[in-house]
Write a protein that binds this DNA or RNA. Structure first.
Length: 590
RNA sequence: GGGGACGUAGUUCAGCUGGUUAGAACGCAUGCCUGUCACGCAUGAGGCCGCGGGUUCGAGUCCCGUCGUCCCCGCCA
């Protein structure tokens, strides 16, 4: 580049720069060669500006311009001039000016790009990931990653203003039971021993509280070796937050204000406080612990008359959802909903239409008109609306059946929203889901497992039930949900060793196992542990939502495929036998 | 682990009920062109139809398997 120094970015030039001598550098977006006159669209991350290579002004620049191709890296020295009125390009922000080149510097050539770089192009995910360094030049990726940076700055400032300090925690740590599969790292100095990459800095942040750093946060990478989804990568980023002497409401307020500031970056207005919903309400009304609350469409509870229970061989407690009159459902759509409902675990499905000439329903035949009408009236069915009904089979109720019914109602509701292409009433629907159950019964393992994690505090009033009725114990745990996506979760932690030990016992963790795996935590809890609690926010998901992207790959510079492969550097890969030997590792052949 | 969609030129795609030499657009190359901006015009190059097997006189097309990408279920405290 010699002594050249960039004076401006491409996208910033305006008529006010007219007459200025500038030096620009960037990539050739397009070349238009009119013979004795060449136009280059020069691009950097700020935008595009037209460069004119006129042989009368600079024969050498024009000569070099003939060699230039797309994605060549060039420097341009020249003068900003206002374009003649009929040559203005209103489609680009710099369209009123252009740069008359005096010198053109060829800084590097480039192979023909593997796919078009304009925003309209839709290259396959595979080639985008294989040539990620090219893909990153596209305006979309530039926009998303710069937004992510601005958002991260804001997080650091906000948390710092509230007294939180950022502290780094180890990546080489130890495997913990429960939860996701760990990524393991073999130890060279202790052959046969392994570090685990953290699924989250959970224990470290608790130890920081015990260590007297009463407010901590970290923008931190976490690792989970589980199957991927549009919103899940094997390594992902959390905003990890923990505070000592916590009041849940105080934490909520800090996080809500953070969200408000973040979404203001994309011009979204957010009303505070964010509504709260208990887990029980969420499951009852939306059939989900991460409800998309922007559509209404809430389930209500109906009690079937005895005759109906008999006719349907059904449990008397049914769930009903009113589909608005504006959304007609065809017979085949209703049939499809029935298939979905039953596939999702509902024992039976039916519906009642409120038509001008009366209620119409498949239930009329077995039940008669009067019971159908009274069900419809009980649900408050309005003219033109359709009432969807689901319930469990069998006359005895059970918690398992109740749960299946809730899950079916949630799945059905989402299908309905998708199928009817319903638009949410508001663009951003935040909700806190609180009072999660402490434990879930794992049918496969035949034991209770922690729904959040084993370090969560049960509600004080539920402590007496801890051993006698674990399923009834509520945790001091909460999730933050946005538009049906879980974007954060946390809890008030256990800070007393005796209760932590009781929780481990309920989870089937013997005293010895607990001591072996969490001895350091148990000891720490006995060394003056303050009450503490916190939250972890799914940073990739939040940035993706802000950017209007439906896949977190779009806000990650170098993401992996759905099979956890990095197509660019071809990881994972085999290693030299010597490396394995040093680690004392032998690969099993089969 | 299971289900679904896709895989044809550098890219995005078309290719019917199995039947001549597999097409289009964009991109690329060469030439012409002094006001273009999705420049234009002319000419041209470019294909292991993902891979392997099978059916058939004949397979891009049908069948089986396999690999890859995406989405979903399970899984993800």
């Amino acid at each position: 580049m010699g002594d050249w120094r960039r004076t401006h970015h491409c996208g910033e030039l305006r008529p006010s720069h007219a007459g200025q001598k500038v030096f620009l550098a960037g990539w050739v977006d397009r070349r238009r060669d009119l013979g004795h006159l060449i136009f280059l669209d020069l691009r950097d991350h700020t935008g595009i500006v037209q460069v004119v290579l006129n042989p009368e002004l600079s024969p050498s620049a024009h000569d070099k311009g003939e060699q230039v191709r797309s994605e060549y890296v060039v420097g341009v020295e020249g003068e900003v001039v206002v374009r003649a009125e009929q040559t203005v390009n209103p489609q680009i922000p710099t369209g009123q000016v252009e740069v008359q080149a005096r010198q053109l510097l060829l800084l590097n050539d480039a192979k023909t790009p593997p796919f078009p770089l304009d925003d309209g192009a839709r290259p396959s995910e595979e080639s985008r990931l294989r040539y990620r360094y090219v893909d990153l030049r596209r305006a979309r990726m530039q926009r998303n990653l710069r937004l992510r940076h601005q958002a991260a700055l804001l997080v650091r400032r906000h948390m710092s203003e509230h007294g939180f300090i950022e502290i780094e925690t180890p990546f080489l740590t130890r495997s913990t039971p429960e939860g996701a599969r760990d990524y393991l790292v073999p130890s060279r100095l202790r052959p046969g021993h392994f570090y685990a990459l953290p699924q989250s800095p959970q224990l470290f942040k608790q130890l920081l509280m015990i260590g007297g750093f009463d407010r901590y946060f970290q923008i931190v990478r976490c690792f989970r070796d589980e199957d991927l989804r549009a919103d899940r990568q094997p390594e992902f980023t959390q905003i990890d937050v923990e505070m000592a002497f916590p009041q849940r409401e105080e934490l909520f307020e800090i996080i809500e204000r953070l969200m408000q500031k973040l979404f203001a970056l994309v011009d979204a207005r957010m009303e505070l406080p964010v509504p709260r919903l208990t887990y029980a309400e969420a499951m009852e009304r939306y059939g989900s612990d991460k409800p998309h609350t922007g559509f209404g469409l809430e389930w209500a509870r109906l009690t079937l008359p005895a005759a109906a229970c008999q006719a349907l061989k059904a449990d008397p407690s049914a769930k009903a959802l009113r589909v608005p009159a504006a959304e007609p459902l065809s017979r085949s759509q209703l049939d499809q909903l029935q298939d979905w409902a039953q596939a999702s675990g509902a024992g039976w499905f039916s519906y009642i239409k409120n038509e001008p000439n009366g209620f119409r329903s498949p239930l009329t035949k077995p039940l008669g008109e009067a019971p159908v009408a009274s069900l419809a009236r009980a649900a408050g069915l309005q003219p033109g609306e359709i009432l969807l009904l689901i319930g469990s089979k069998g006359e005895t109720a059970s918690s398992l059946k109740a749960r299946q019914l809730d899950e079916a109602s949630g799945a059905l509701r989402l299908r309905l929203i998708e199928r009817l292409r319903l638009a949410p009433r508001a663009p951003w629907n935040f909700v806190w889901v609180v009072d999660f159950p402490m434990f879930e019964y794992d049918e496969k393992e035949n034991r209770f497992v922690a729904m959040h994690h084993p370090f969560t505090s049960p509600r004080e009033e539920d402590l007496p039930k801890l051993e006698s009725d674990p399923a009834a114990v509520k945790a001091r745990a909460y999730d933050l949900v946005l538009n049906g996506q879980e974007i954060g979760g946390g809890s008030i932690r256990l800070h007393r060793r005796d209760i932590q030990a009781r929780v481990f016992r309920v989870l089937g963790l013997s005293e010895e196992m607990a001591r072996e795996r969490f001895g350091f935590l148990m000891d720490a809890l006995e060394s003056g542990a303050p009450p503490h609690g916190g939250i972890a926010l799914g940073w990739d998901r939040i940035v993706a939502l802000m950017a209007g992207e439906s896949n977190i790959r779009e806000v990650i510079a170098f993401p992996k495929t759905a099979s956890a492969v990095d197509l660019m550097c071809d990881a994972p890969a085999t290693v030299d036998p010597e490396q394995l030997d040093e680690l004392g590792i032998q690969i099993k052949q089969d």
